[in-house]
Amino acid sequence: ELKTLPKGATALDFAYNLHTDIGDTCIGAKVNHHLVPLSHRLESGDQVEVLTSKSQHPTVEWLNFVTTAKARTKIEAVLKRERKELAKAGEEKIKEVFQKASLEPTQSFLDKLATYFGFSRREDFYYAIEKGDVIIPDNIRKILKEKNGNVILKYVKKAFGVGKKKPRILTPSDASSDKPVFDKTKPYELREEAFGRNYVVASCCKPIPGDEVFGFINDDNSVIVHKRSCPIGIRLKSNFGDRILSTVWSSHTSSSFEAILQITGIDEVGILTGIAQTISGFHVNIIRLLIETKDGVFEGKINMMVHDVEDIQKMCIALSKIKNVQSVSRIVN
């Protein structure tokens, strides 16, 4: 069957051209019998076979993979519907909190609470609650009655997961003072210490040495390290600029950090053996290795402990050289 698409159309555009359900569940395609990603641009005369999976669903990144208005509209419709559903669930959660506090969830209270957590629209606030980006304490009376920002700061930090007790930062000033002093005129060096590190890795984005990061000074003066692209980190920067530190990584040889690689390709006998042998050559600790195959295509995720971004880059290059491996990339939170 012949299909006509505009110049520059991608495999994902083609899938949506066939049917909305096919587009929504598309995981890739075979073009002229070769496995290609969703973003692959098609050429005139290409033979295309769309690959789907029931577990697949559209993501925001898909908007970068399409050029046709039809595909973009379909993707946006799904994202809007999912966001609305999540926001509704978040709204129910906040109403439960109000009920426990014996308070009426009036528009005034809801708007005030949303504003305190940095949201101008209640729907965005509800969405963040359901996504886990914001956690509302059971007792919200203090927040609603507080006139200054102190209590709000406390709960925002709790919502961002930076209010828990963390290891104290070790600095040269410890010898004469119990409280670390941060020199903001120069980058804070993220380094290994004798029994740990002089910083704490943020659980929301899990950066590793080599990532572009910044530090957030917590109440106990520990430094929480976030990726610059981390949504929670960005919100912290906009609300608590006086607590932000520029940072620089030092060499890490002892500490290990969890990283996840995604690998896809064409399935064949011996492909798993080749992947395992390549990984073993790097002497890294594999936490989890999962590979699934369907319709002649495999997709896998590898959880491992590495020292820095360079380890990941070397691993990706080595794995990509294996015959029939089509793509290898790091999964970033």
Rank of each mutant, 00 (worst) to 15 (best):
E130D: 14
F125A: 01
G23N: 05
G118M: 11
I275R: 06
F298I: 07
N198A: 01
H40Y: 11
E189S: 13
N150L: 12
P209W: 02
F240Q: 06
K74R: 06
A202L: 02
Q277V: 12
G296M: 08
V200C: 04
K321E: 15
A202Q: 05
K164G: 08
N139I: 12
T20C: 07
D311N: 09
F65V: 05
V328Y: 00
D311Y: 06
D295L: 13
S254V: 14
I312E: 04
N239V: 10
I287H: 11
K84C: 06
I263K: 00
L261V: 02
N32W: 08
G163M: 07
K145F: 09
V284N: 14
K54I: 13
P58V: 13
A71F: 09
E299K: 14
V325E: 04
W62H: 03
K294F: 10
S177W: 02
T293E: 15
K84E: 13
K166V: 14
D46P: 00
A71H: 06
K100N: 02
L103C: 00
L51Q: 05
F65C: 11
Y127D: 10
K145A: 12
A29I: 04
Q56Y: 06
I234Y: 07
I140Y: 00
G23T: 04
L35V: 06
K70M: 05
N303A: 15
L42H: 05
F298R: 09
H252G: 08
I271H: 04
K301P: 09
V31P: 01
D13N: 05
L272I: 10
A71T: 10
D138V: 09
V31R: 00
D24F: 10
R197E: 15
Q99P: 01
L42K: 08
I275A: 01
